[in-house]
Design a protein around this nucleic acid. Structure first.
Lengths: 174, 174
DNA sequence: AAAACCGGTTGCGAAATAAAATCAGTTCGA
DNA sequence: TCGAACTGATTTTATTTCGCAACCGGTTTT
């Protein structure tokens, strides 16, 4: 229960190592990915809509750990008494560039499917400017930062639209 | 060649997920890090000089997996019959930007030690130009690409020198 | 009132992980 | 020549984690 209280039981003070101690498993980043790109904010959304089929006990465990590490936070949903809303913290939002790089590497070297990698491609092509725009959007959604007036659709919406388009092309190839 | 033959037992075709299936554990990236930044090329070097204290069976297992995934390769040491030399492949070398981003995140958000994070800082400050220079250096060392004539010390040497300097400062603070 | 939904918990067998001891071939010094 | 030390590992054993399925008390919807 108490989790890690103090316990600087770190293997080393290397940034790579410490990051692996926090995120170095097969599920933690999957959950953050779903929150960030899929806008899943509730336990059941993360559970049922997850592409990889995460188990509920693993999900509960990782949400607990990510909270303890300060990557996400949790609050009650005012509209629904036993519903919890999970949010990314600034620490979690700033994982976006890491996702962009991992996505780019995976897209280049692993057998990705086109539909699921179109977002990684756009993120890669958009570069740091697009990342910053998306992070600002995430800050509004997850941290409640007031929105500066923007014109068109948000980054997530653009990524989603691109995904839909690929799916449509896939169903009716030219 | 053999590599992924059959067995598309992948959880999904998402680039993030596929990357996690390859590298999503607490040790794989540690080993690649040591090969890349510490220039460890032999089993014993990776085992004995590892900062985090990896166990020999885990090291052997991860080296096997990373080879199967094509991230590293192995060849005999001509000077020593039962000595093996491990090398990064191009696929492994191109993990450098991922390390740079992970290192930057870890340095910002986790309790890193100064000495062990100075390299991450330089890599972050150097930006993509420095990354490309380092990757070119790695291609020479690991892939046998002929060196284009360079002037000063290499990137790894500069990173190492910065580390030594921090250590020296630590011992004799101003 | 009944059914569906909510965020989880529990139990269990299988698999992965990790520490320590061990191994066979190689090299090297005495 | 012999044996100790070194090489890249494997084996053994114990512990932890994973993944599945069933379940839970409370809440909301029908």
């Amino acid at each position: 229960m108490a989790a890690d209280k103090e316990a600087s039981a770190h293997r080393s003070g290397c940034p790579i190592n410490l990051t692996l101690e926090v995120l170095g498993d097969k599920w933690s980043l999957i959950i953050v990915r779903d929150m960030m790109f899929g806008n899943r904010r509730h336990f059941r959304e993360l559970l049922a809509q997850n592409e990889e089929g995460i188990a509920s006990n693993i999900l509960a465990d990782r949400l607990r750990r990510l909270m303890a590490e300060g990557v996400i936070s949790k609050k009650d949903d005012p509209s629904h008494k036993q519903k919890a809303i999970y949010s990314l913290t600034e620490k979690g939002i700033e994982l976006l560039p890491v996702f962009a790089m991992i996505g780019a590497w995976g897209r280049k070297w692993l057998p990705v499917t086109e539909a699921l990698s179109i977002r990684a491609q756009l993120l890669e092509e958009g570069g740091p400017d697009l990342w910053e725009e998306f992070m600002e959007e995430l800050r509004q959604e997850h941290l409640g930062i007031p929105a500066k007036p923007r014109s068109g659709p948000g980054v997530r919406e653009r990524l989603r639209a691109a995904y839909e388009e690929v799916m449509a092309r896939g169903r009716a190839p030219a």
